[in-house]
Design a protein around this nucleic acid. Structure first.
Lengths: 204, 204
DNA sequence: ACAGAATACCTATGTACATAGTGAGTGACA
DNA sequence: TGTCACTCACTATGTACATAGGTATTCTGT
């Protein structure tokens, strides 16, 4: 149900056509809740059917073709608020990286270290991306934020912006934590003499 | 495909009946990769069909009923090693807590703080659980670990144990990070005067 | 004038997972 | 002898999501 909320949140800053939803999604909310377009289009239609969104055909091209523009309805806004109200069930632990690490004794020589290095790489990227988002928010470079602020009274701007920054800060510190963990892992491997030793373990 | 690997990892310490797989799973690997029994039983059968597991009927009860005992085959062990070798695609960001936080401006008064407090609560639990696992590993209280060590030469014991501890340490520091983040969020709300102010924002 | 790229908008299909059951055997006690 | 709780072993069903297409329309270069 989070995709639904993410879409409502996106559309709460103003109407968008399906295609624009997809585009803006991946450039904003998508950083915190990824979804492919193949999931977005049907969901929009479903939400429309349930009255959370209104739709309006917009002419496109010269041959009478149309695209659909969606906008949030009062009921959609109610759903958004309600979503923020109700506590959510946490998803169960399910982490491929930790799973692998727990059974590194099965990794061929070098493979464990390679995994950890890839882990670090990945989270360095994530970190950089999140930081870029934060700067874009703080310097008001983000077009999605601009739309949203324009749709709200000025005394709310600070508040709205800081919540988004706060969310991305969470991603930054999570990335930091993952990097630190993986580095500790590399040190562990080193300590076990596992960065070059060709040894086959685990075979009962 | 991670469930598959988790099951192979579990069975690599010795044969188990379906039921015991389910039980031991949730007491060990399950902490790092959760799966319900309804997913485990069919997967075991599939893995058996593909030759990763061998099966043997074990009599159960007095009326000739049987249960199935699964054990890992050489091919299963090969799959385990291969899994550790190949790099994995990281799953896309998809975090309900961050998503909510990014749109806290829609939260009714008090709801944002409540979310963050629940977040802290949840990760305190997680943290405690992971720590308990670590102690169980280090003091050799864990029956699953005992089985595994018994199936391996003594000079591997340290190594095997430390990998598992390392994985759980990752959970601990992740939990710590989440708690810190949520606490920062509470401070932000306080700064914005949002722990009691009845104010309706976001309504365009 | 036409090719090719880019834009705009979808659809189909399969799988992983959640949720919620079912039903048979055992042991213990009242 | 009945019923209760517990162990053991599954099955059914729906949804979220990934992967991989497809088909118009407009734009750009030559």
């Amino acid at each position: 149900m989070s995709l639904r909320s993410a879409l409502l949140a996106l559309l709460s800053s103003g109407p968008l056509t399906g295609y624009d939803v997809v585009k803006q999604f991946s450039a904003s909310v998508g950083h915190v809740w990824h979804a492919p377009d193949s999931q977005i289009y049907p969901e929009l239609r479903k939400m429309h059917a349930e009255g959370l969104l209104a739709s309006r055909p917009v002419p496109w091209g010269s041959r009478g073709a149309t695209k659909t523009e969606y906008s949030i309805t009062p009921e959609g806004e109610r759903a958004l608020r309600q979503w923020q109200e109700q506590p959510f069930g946490y998803v169960r632990e399910r982490d491929p990286a930790h799973l692998r690490a727990a059974y590194f004794e099965w990794a061929p020589p070098g493979a464990a270290a390679a995994q950890l290095r890839a882990h670090i790489e990945h989270y360095r990227d994530q970190r950089a991306q999140a930081l870029a988002q934060i700067t874009a928010l703080q310097e008001r470079t983000s077009p999605t934020l601009a739309r949203r602020l324009a749709a709200n009274p000025e005394d709310q701007w600070e508040r709205i912006t800081r919540f988004k920054v706060f969310a991305y800060e969470g991603q930054v510190s999570r990335a930091d934590q993952e990097i630190t963990w993986a580095e500790r892992g590399l040190r562990l491997l080193e300590e076990l003499g596992e960065l070059g030793r060709p040894d086959e373990p685990g075979t009962r």
